[in-house]
Design a protein around this nucleic acid. Structure first.
Lengths: 242, 242
DNA sequence: GTCTATAGCTTGATAGAC
DNA sequence: GTCTATCAAGCTATAGAC
């Protein structure tokens, strides 16, 4: 069982490593570190933590296995480093977007569609236009969110505050909504978001090519309309609000 | 890369194994075989294919590792056997349910809510009351659906026909809906279903205990209302139908 | 910083006694 | 059918030269 238990995630007060730099230093070769993270991000997103070996990461990064340990220590620390690298920008950007929208929603005031547009578009845009790293990261987040073992603390620390802020703003639009309904509605939306960002290709096959998993522009448009209607149905029955 | 490539799934024309029984034989001890499948199902659903070792499966099943290979051959074949065991009953039951509903929808005719109730309730009920094996299986399906590498062929073979039948019946309710819209709407609903059946516990933490992942009765109720409204918004804009 | 070399262990799978 | 015993290969991680 030992191996299957989730290895201890990066702890706040951990010594973490022996001597090497936790981040790229001024004189040090930051490219090597970033290259290892890129390779690990790619592989972890496709095969999961246990489906990737340090050797494969090293090979894809074009470095030696010892170097991976030199920079990141244990394998789990490498995973956490991958996950953390983009977590903050990912979430701060969409929180900024909904806060901007709340400040200046336009003449008609805030709508669920407008709010979701602000909240969802950034991750979709990163995935589409941020380069392959961001696409891999999106898939990694999707996979991690669907897995109870990994990233529990990290997901909660970085992602939950963003979601809570979103729900606060939804409450401004639907002041009579019950909180429990809001969370369940979010859960439905979150599942859709997760599956979409994974780009598994299942929809392509199911639809006989009619839909493409990679068409994230469409996916985002559909999700906004689908979720807004879903929230209204679940949180504002009998025309209470919304 | 070799290890990471998806091992060949159970092929239709494969010899598969050397001598041992592919299924429980009359005189053979079917309990052992089933016990191995139960253990593997549990572990795979929690840690994924690469996160589980044959030794752990054997230990949890209370048998020797050699016996696992005796019954199932390679590790991937064991995974496929786990996945296949409940796939047919899982899907045939929900297809039967929607077909029954389509034949006798009640006085008001078919509704999206009624159809989704018929389609969604069976897997939720299995997960709630079918014993731990069914709960593990639900989580395994959820995880597999979200992963591009595994179960591609198996998922398509057993699950896609059921979904296509569901979409056919939705088309009877919303005859003017465009097919592409129906598939994208399904995709949103599928993501919610997947995340819910995984019971990851993320929602419990996010909501501060207000919602419980294990409360599948509520989860199903919410999903039906959320998805029905979502389908209408996406597939029947401007009150075309539905 | 980057490498070679290797320790120390675990893995999937098999051979063969019973 | 079930076990013991074992193999070859692969793994993470480290020590130490440069």
């Amino acid at each position: 069982m030992t191996k299957l238990d989730a290895p201890a995630p990066e702890s706040a007060s951990a010594p973490a490593r022996r001597g090497p730099p936790a981040k790229a230093t001024a004189q040090g070769n930051g490219d090597t570190r970033e290259g290892i993270l890129d390779a690990a991000e790619d592989l972890f997103s496709k095969h999961g933590f246990y489906g990737v070996t340090i050797r494969e990461v090293a090979r894809e990064a074009g470095v030696d296995t010892a170097l991976v340990h030199y920079y990141f220590g244990a394998k789990r620390a490498l995973f956490d480093a991958v996950f953390l690298r983009r977590a903050e920008v990912w979430n701060s950007e969409r929180v900024d977007a909904i806060n901007r929208y709340a400040r200046d929603p336009g003449p008609d005031g805030m709508t669920l569609e407008g709010l979701f547009e602000a909240f969802l578009r950034p991750p979709f845009q990163w995935s589409l236009k941020g380069g392959p790293g961001w696409k891999h990261y999106a898939a990694l987040v999707a996979q991690t969110n669907a897995n109870p073992t990994f990233g529990g603390e990290t997901m909660a620390r970085y992602f939950d505050p963003a979601i809570r802020r979103l729900i606060e703003l939804i409450q401004q639009i639907m002041p009579d909504a019950r909180e429990v309904d809001l969370y369940w509605a979010w859960h439905n939306m979150s599942g859709a978001l997760t599956l979409t960002l994974g780009e598994t290709g299942r929809l392509d096959r199911l639809s006989g090519g009619l839909c493409r998993s990679g068409d994230l522009e469409s996916a985002c448009d559909y999700m906004i309309r689908f979720a807004a209607a879903g929230f209204r149905a679940v949180c504002a029955p009998e025309g209470r609000a919304g």
